[in-house]
Write a protein that binds this DNA or RNA. Structure first.
Lengths: 246, 246
DNA sequence: ATTTGGTAGTGTTCTAATGACACATTGCTC
DNA sequence: GAGCAATGTGTCATTAGAACACTACCAAAT
């Protein structure tokens, strides 16, 4: 096995979700048009792996190299391996020629996803990323390669997962209100949820601690702030719950 | 992209589950010890992919080549990519040297699983498989490479999936009794389930048709036979159900 | 013909979870 | 102090879940 050499056949891609208390975002980079042109070519951060690293490590490395974001928990979405997945569009092929040592190689990719607190993670583009930033998930339509499909798979997995584990809380600031959590679930499920039933159900989980602290400076009745109760939260994360659906 | 050439870096592995109305089985092959020795080396069927095929196609091809089994639905478990995953054990390394063109290459694998009616699928070993057959899942301990870990992931995914989709019915014969279905769920969940509650819940799904036909030749009260009601079954497969847990 | 062994098949009750639904409260702004 | 905008709260009716024990039926043995 060669050390520190890019494996031409395997890449990783990272679908990073964020939330600004209004809508869901996904972290995209502009991988740049082909040499000499100035087109933009939006993609989720991803690149070939080294032969010496695990897939998880590779995903973490690539994410950091392209966007500066690090120290997050990544979960695998799965492998995408259509032989044509990177060669269907002319723009993709030109891009590969301009950047890869073996642009014709068949590449399968392993996709990961994660949920982060947007304000804590300010992407800074580097390596071949011309820019990096958050795009509202609903407004993303075309992406490089099969990244749109990968994004959709990530979304589906997120929806499935949120029903059986208290993830998604990573998307909120440390102190948050029940309304914000409520909004988050509405965004992910993409449908309205009854406020009272939501509050009842979430409070019954016993993973929230009321901070006896209120919002300040809001032009309406200030809301109670909550944080996660680490103990119960971790326990529940491991066990999962049967059905947190609505 | 080279035609019909094995990609030295990517393989597929297939975890095929079966059920004989008593317990869960998994399809294993004996990939043979190293040259000149006669050790057995149990593994789930798997091999390198061709550059021209999709991962799904590769899984189907490899499964057929090694065990003769074909025409089944495969679902992806995920990718396994520890750089050492195939080189940790001496026996694995020797085996690779005896069979692979590039035994030192780093190989990531994409695992698939499926559920089949055991009696309909009689594995016949070919290619490098010295033998192929069903092994009770509970009695499997050591496997080649990281196949034991892959098997466990497959089992976990099966347990998760069975709660939200009427899979698992593929494990039963066309005509089956409620007791057999009951037993199947107990095997997969690995715990006893209340008979009456189980029957009520499964019948409420409206996916079974009573055949007005009874078991014959059993040394006890014969049971009603059922089959799946294709229409409702397919509808429910697509929609999934929220929580078929116990 | 009768007994025995073994599995099939069936209902009720209690409890917990769900979903539908409307109005008073608070703090800020003007 | 009037108006605005979001917070925060309770009940009831329905449904789903868990616990639980006995009779019915067939075959095989006696």
């Amino acid at each position: 096995m060669n050390k520190k050499e890019l494996n031409p056949n395997v890449s990783v891609d990272c679908v990073i979700f964020g939330f600004d208390l209004e809508q869901l975002y996904v972290l995209l980079i502009d991988s740049g048009g082909m040499e000499g042109y100035n087109q933009s070519r939006m993609a989720v951060p991803g690149d070939l792996i080294y032969d010496t690293e695990t897939l998880d490590t590779a995903a973490r490395r690539v994410l950091k190299e392209l966007t500066g974001i690090e120290n997050i928990y990544l979960e695998q979405i799965g492998a995408f391996g259509d032989p044509d997945r990177i060669g269907k569009k002319v723009s993709d092929r030109k891009w590969l020629e301009s950047i890869r040592a073996m642009p014709e190689a068949r590449v399968i990719t392993v996709a990961y996803y994660s949920l982060v607190r947007m304000p804590n993670f300010n992407p800074k583009a580097s390596s071949f990323a011309k820019s990096a930033g958050w795009a509202p998930v609903n407004e993303v339509h075309d992406l490089a390669f099969d990244h749109y499909e990968i994004l959709q798979s990530g979304l589906e997995q997120l929806k499935r997962k949120i029903k059986i584990q208290p993830i998604g809380f990573n998307l909120l600031p440390e102190k948050f209100t029940l309304s914000q959590l409520h909004k988050l679930y509405e965004c992910i499920y993409d449908k309205p949820l009854d406020k009272r039933n939501f509050r009842r159900k979430i409070l019954n989980l016993n993973i929230l601690t009321n901070l006896d602290e209120k919002q300040i400076g809001v032009p309406h009745k200030p809301s109670q702030l909550f944080k996660f109760n680490e103990g119960n939260f971790k326990k529940l994360s491991e066990e999962g719950f049967d059905n947190f659906g609505f």
